[in-house]
């Protein structure tokens, strides 16, 4: 893939949520630093994986990226337009190009709408097809693209299984012919035998329409399978980013190493033989993240420097970025 201009550019993106208390005067008592200075680019036609444990800020990052949460600081440019400062018509036109697929196939479809209404919503909002008849033709076409029968358009979401609902969600995301789709854990709520169907569908659609994905997930095996490059998040920051095989085979950051070693392998001999790094303790609170390197309280390599200074984000090898004092 020739790299011209990246489709998505994220610079020092921050999203803090205030923690308030009090009934009348809502005093701010702290800040949840869900995303605390994240930068990356996504090239056209590429899939970037964003992985990390729950609470690391990956979902918030994905939503802030699409302007669903107002960013606290930073710049997000999608196809050259800054979504953080865009308003009104400009925002709407960016929204048309950047869509989202959600985690929970039960909660992400309006239960009182028919499939036709759900899938045609982007068409109506962006006034893409005004004629009712043409619009429902387009909905049927979209249903076909995701492997569902066009005859099902008058049904309600509750009549479908989880995998089918996820396909409906994909059809909705495709309706406005986007360039970029944020996939927020699109398969983690599905059964194993259904996951592969949805992943293959996403790959086929990418090939067909040249889509660019940000694939947010906690399943590191699936991320290795589907993503071209992978970013690892911990407590609101990216600690390592590299091309997939580089990351999985030559990981540098001790957190990446621990995370990968914790993923079970469906092979008894290999699984039992390998060296596990069991991290102690839990992820600290993002309200008071540790000073210095955020990973230092759980890090097996941590030294004096890690407690004091924030590690620099540097390119350790071509295209392989890491933030750690010790590697």
């Amino acid at each position: 893939m020739s790299v011209t201009q990246p489709l998505v550019e994220v610079q020092n993106l921050k999203k803090y949520f205030p923690v308030t208390s009090g009934l009348f005067l809502q005093r701010k008592v702290g800040m949840v630093r869900a995303v605390d200075g994240v930068s990356f680019i996504i090239n056209r036609g590429e899939t970037l994986g964003l992985v990390g444990e729950s609470g690391c800020g990956k979902t918030t990052a994905g939503r802030t990226l699409l302007g669903l949460y107002p960013a606290t600081a930073g710049v997000v440019r999608i196809d050259g337009h800054d979504i953080c400062s865009a308003k009104g018509r400009e925002l709407l036109s960016i929204r048309r190009k950047a869509q989202m697929i959600f985690q929970d196939p039960y909660a992400s479809l309006n239960p009182r709408w028919t499939v036709n209404a759900i899938v045609s919503e982007p068409l109506r909002v962006h006034k893409l097809i005004k004629n009712n008849k043409e619009r429902s033709e387009r909905v049927k076409e979209l249903m076909g693209l995701v492997g569902l029968s066009g005859r099902l358009v008058n049904r309600f979401p509750h009549e479908f299984s989880g995998g089918q609902r996820q396909r409906i969600g994909v059809a909705r995301a495709l309706a406005s012919e986007p360039l970029f789709i944020v996939c927020d854990e699109p398969i983690s709520a599905l059964d194993v035998s259904i996951q592969a169907q949805v992943v293959n569908l996403l790959e086929d659609l990418q090939d067909q329409f040249g889509l660019t994905y940000l694939f947010i997930a906690h399943d590191l095996s699936m991320v290795r399978h589907i993503c071209d490059r992978v970013a690892v998040m911990y407590l609101g920051v990216i600690v390592e980013l590299a091309e997939r095989n580089e990351l999985y085979e030559h990981y540098l950051h001790p957190y990446t190493r621990a995370l990968l070693s914790a993923v079970p392998i469906p092979d008894p001999k290999k699984d039992r033989a390998r060296q596990r790094i069991i991290l102690t303790g839990d992820v600290p609170s993002p309200i008071h993240p540790p000073e210095g390197c955020r990973f230092h309280p759980r890090c097996p390599l941590a030294g004096e420097e890690c407690r004091i200074n924030d590690p620099q984000w540097r390119e350790a090898a071509p295209g392989h970025w890491v933030a750690c004092h010790k590697v």
Binding site: S193, A196, N200, S221, R224, H225, K270
Partner: peptide
């Protein structure tokens, strides 16, 4: 149908058609 964290991608995932 399971991707492997310890192997390079060598193929599409084999999906099981349909549902239980």
């Amino acid at each position: 149908a399971l991707p492997r964290v310890d192997r390079r991608r060598d193929r599409r995932l084999k999906s099981i058609a349909g549902a239980p």
